[in-house]
Simulated assay, not measured.
Amino acid sequence: MWFDSWYDLGRLLVVGPVAYVSLVLLLRISGKRTLAKLNAFDLVVTVALGSTLASVLLSSTVSITEGVLGMLLLVGLQYVVAWTQVRVPAVRRVVASEPTLLYRDGFLDNALRRQRVTRQEVLQAAREQSHSDLSDVAAVVLETDGSFSVLRAAPRLPATP
């Protein structure tokens, strides 16, 4: 349980840095989009890259070449899907969701139900962005990555005499 062999420890010390450097290089070459959490597909790619790295590090049945090829395949597929969704609206609709307006001059109950969000979660999002209540909030949007955007209402100007 605590120790199997010196070979396994040595393998980890050699494979670990190689796999790590390979992943960092792949991410730098592929650009910022690879790690962006813009939609569910991007999240899946990020988790899969982490899982692949862990498999290479901890499984002696997965060679460094297989691991790097797996990471390269994931990054390449993510690039192809991202490139395609920018150019083909039908692909964009399948891969990425649309932002949902949850609050504008009052809660939009149908949107809250569809997105399975409570009023308390909207209020929490407002508080996290320094709004003690919704009186100075114009709108709250559930973004495609699951985060909330709280849009401040335009300041009211005093009436001129």
Results as ranks from 00 to 15, higher is better:
31 G>T: 15
89 P>L: 03
125 A>L: 01
133 D>F: 04
135 S>W: 13
161 P>K: 15
88 V>C: 12
64 I>G: 06
32 K>Q: 15
143 E>S: 00
19 A>T: 12
34 T>A: 14
61 T>W: 15
76 G>L: 10
82 A>V: 09
112 L>Q: 01
23 L>N: 09
137 V>K: 04
70 G>S: 15
104 R>E: 15
132 S>G: 06
21 V>K: 15
139 A>R: 02
101 L>G: 09
46 T>L: 08
154 A>V: 15
109 D>I: 04
151 L>Y: 07
153 A>P: 10
65 T>I: 12
29 I>R: 13
147 S>C: 11
120 Q>D: 09
53 L>N: 10
77 L>S: 03
68 V>D: 09
149 S>M: 08
11 R>P: 10
54 A>K: 15
80 V>Q: 02
98 E>Y: 12
75 V>G: 07
108 L>N: 03
16 G>Y: 03
161 P>L: 07
1 M>K: 10
149 S>W: 10
47 V>S: 14
1 M>I: 08
111 A>D: 02
155 P>N: 06
12 L>I: 03
3 F>G: 09
107 F>T: 07
22 S>Q: 11
49 L>D: 01
106 G>I: 04
101 L>E: 00
50 G>V: 12
62 V>H: 13
157 L>Y: 12
91 V>N: 13
115 Q>A: 11
113 R>Y: 01
83 W>M: 13
151 L>V: 09
140 V>N: 02
